[in-house]
Design a protein around this nucleic acid. Sequence first.
DNA 1: TTGTATGCGTTATCAC
DNA 2: GTGATAACGCATACAA
Lengths: 344, 344
Amino acid sequence: MVKNFEGSRAKEVAERAGVSRSAVSRAFNPDSYLDPKKRARILKVAGEIGYQPNMAARAMVSNRSHLVAVLLPALQHPWESQELDVLIGELQAIGFATLVYKIPTADLQIAQVSHLRAYNPDSVIVYSDGLPTEGVKSLFNRARPIYPVYVDADACDLASDSNINQGFDRLEIDQRPGIRRAMGMLAGSGCKTMVWLAGDDSTQSNIDRQKVVLGYAKQYGLSVSESIPGDYSYERAREEICAYFRAHPMVDALVAANDVSAFGAMDALRHDLGLKVPEDVKVVGFDNIRQSNWKSYDLTTVGMDIHQRVRALVRLIRSRLKEPDAPDLYERVETRLIVRGTVI
Amino acid sequence: MVKNFEGSRAKEVAERAGVSRSAVSRAFNPDSYLDPKKRARILKVAGEIGYQPNMAARAMVSNRSHLVAVLLPALQHPWESQELDVLIGELQAIGFATLVYKIPTADLQIAQVSHLRAYNPDSVIVYSDGLPTEGVKSLFNRARPIYPVYVDADACDLASDSNINQGFDRLEIDQRPGIRRAMGMLAGSGCKTMVWLAGDDSTQSNIDRQKVVLGYAKQYGLSVSESIPGDYSYERAREEICAYFRAHPMVDALVAANDVSAFGAMDALRHDLGLKVPEDVKVVGFDNIRQSNWKSYDLTTVGMDIHQRVRALVRLIRSRLKEPDAPDLYERVETRLIVRGTVI
DNA sequence: TTGTATGCGTTATCAC
DNA sequence: GTGATAACGCATACAA
């Protein structure tokens, strides 16, 4: 048989502590009955010889892997990595390990990541946008995926809507407060003509942001001609803005689908086109990544409280594990406007 | 007994394909003997009913978890997240899942992450700096940790040195080529007085970078007075540079321990102190993160080929798994200078 | 409250 | 090349 690996000594703890192996097991499961003094002794012995219950064995018998999978389009994007940073910290604090998978938005090859299924995670958070729902579900045995989704109606509408019981739990993001304030601010500082720099148009997040932005822009009397295509990247934003502003010099407000493309736009305006931000053109982004606070950009942006988001996600995970058969769960968070130097 | 979870159907595949369960197992292990036609039939059936061998069971008996753990000080740092992005992609392409743990540099509470041990990863990459070696080792049963380390001597020196057989494998980074070129370039463009903006001084990477930078600076005739304290962060860099340059206006070259603090320094110089970069002060950073290419910074920096690094790490992982008892392994990569607009 | 016995799903061993 | 069978380390139902 395969040689025992050095770290597995369930019965060694039992022998040293003078108890049965089941007592050792119980010592590590807070819900089990065990004499507190005996538990303390066992844990002490375990600590001394560095014993930890093997997670694979534990997962097999209890059907709990203590693994949370996170599906991201790309880890190097500042927003994703900044949320993941907080999320991983919270999860490991409550005893979960995080399995990170990179699944580029547009071209998920389910087969390429099918082994994710083999790890049987307790929960999954899907940041990758534009993935086929059924494809994602086929990646998991028990875990019900959690999706961040944008909503632009009230909670009561949703609850009575087709949105319930789609087979996944949701972190619902109400974008309206932040966007409304942004549009109001642009209009209030005298902007007349606004343009929307889009994100990847295969993503729902781009569609939803655009819809709400254009709606409030109209409401505040901003003239919006057309949308500039983009893909959330700095490089594409810079190129597109160069081309667009050479043809449309009268635009005096720009709203970008994320902060990174707002930076690309600002660099195009300032360094390629010789325009001043915010004097000539005011700029608003989305996400409130840390870089938005860097003085060279100092970007006004629509963002969320990342800790609030993560706490909501963790609540969703724990609730779902407690009640695997409950109907779709959801938590709601709101955006707000973080005012910095790009709208005066 | 615990209810079987829906996705575990080892024998179901066997029955449908008309073979034994051993055959199913062999079908999924390329090294096992099995009639190719039979294997194909089994894999086809498995695909149809969405069967994947359960990793927990597999790990228990084969002592291979197909898990790679990565220990990072913080995920939101651009450099870490950009390398992790590539690393995760490569690992999942060869059938490994990545377990990401956040372990802040200075204050590892081993107890807080001791459950990492329970997952029994096949390999571990330690980016967190300044962690006690013994503490890290105690987190793993079989895996031998891989550390990125800086070297400033030749390979032959190292091999005969005490560096061998310390119980961990190494990605050795020779910083000299990039740093030498950077110092040569600063001296060549007429700089006289250079200053070093340090990173977190509890980290080995800061100590090593500083040593090599100051060595080459001296060699190229640059006058280096003292070091400015820092912690790799934008905010601290900006503060410290403001204070320092108000007291030392004659400095005409600045080398920062990483790109992010170089950005903080540049913003201090330009926006707080009214100096011009590169006309008044030339700036060099470390890491070559994507943000260094953003036009507002356009930073000259000492970096590495991230794909080359990741390939080397993957080679280390695979070699170690093939020969668990081999002496310390190492791979070597070099830095180079990426010249952009901050040194003319 | 505690110990004993069983089974989780897979791979490795050993006969065939 | 193939199938039966014994582990792997643990949690739990059940008996005590």
